[in-house]
Simulated assay, not measured.
Amino acid sequence: MPAKAPFQPVDNEARSLANELIDTARFGALAVLSPETRAPSVTRIAVGTDLDGTPMTLISNLSSHTAALKADPRCSLLVGEPGPKGDPLTHPRLTLDCEAEFLPRDTDAHAALREHYLKSHPKAALYVDFADFCFVRLHVNHALLNGGFGKAFKLSASDLS
């Protein structure tokens, strides 16, 4: 007998929780494939959303995850942090399957995103204009939401818009 899939049908409550996790995230765990070893590599990054709500980050060209994203733009982003009490595994979290898009610095879109990002990440003003930093949009293909015990959902990109 095949095992029962653990996922529930996506409803408005799941969509709302997933979007809240994206909108409130200030950092997350980014998973990439190392171009040298082809092994997975995970790092913590600052996270925000662009003007239309797409997850994005500001990263340095000197980092290994930037090189990995330039070699292969497929990545995953985990957002959602445990609360101050209880088992960390009972708190909601969202894994986003994404495709990275680097935003050129010399565009009007970059200037608008810079202003928008600094509203939620004011300390980034210290380095946002360094030549090695760039904005990267993380376009979501699909997502897995763990809303707590017994609350697992597979969401499409359209569920998050």
Rank of each mutant, 00 (worst) to 15 (best):
K4S: 13
D159N: 13
H116D: 10
G53D: 12
D52G: 07
R74M: 08
L77K: 06
A111R: 14
D52R: 14
N146M: 13
A3V: 11
L118P: 02
L51F: 03
L89D: 09
P104E: 03
T107L: 07
L69M: 15
L30N: 06
L77T: 03
E36M: 01
V79S: 14
A143D: 07
A111W: 00
V32R: 00
H65D: 08
P40I: 02
H139Y: 00
A111G: 04
D159R: 11
V42G: 01
P55T: 09
H142Y: 09
L155N: 11
V10T: 15
F7K: 13
L78V: 14
L69H: 06
E20W: 06
A131P: 08
L69C: 07
A46M: 11
M56Q: 12
D108L: 10
R105T: 07
G83C: 05
F27I: 03
L144K: 09
D50I: 04
A25C: 07
K85I: 03
L118T: 05
L69G: 08
D159L: 10
V128T: 09
S16T: 12
F153V: 02
G53I: 11
V10C: 08
A5Q: 15
T43W: 00
A152T: 12
E101N: 07
P55G: 10
D52P: 00
T107R: 11
A124E: 13
Y117K: 05
N61I: 00
D108H: 08
K154W: 07
I59Q: 02
S34L: 01
D72F: 01
D108T: 07
A14V: 00
P82N: 10
A67S: 13
P73R: 06
D23Y: 00
L33T: 13
P9Y: 03
S34Q: 03
L77A: 02
K154M: 12
R137Q: 03
V140M: 04
C134F: 11
D159K: 12
K70N: 10
F135C: 03
T54L: 02
P84I: 04
L118S: 10
A71I: 02
G83Q: 11
S41K: 01
F102Q: 09
P9Q: 13
K154I: 08
K4Y: 03
E81V: 06
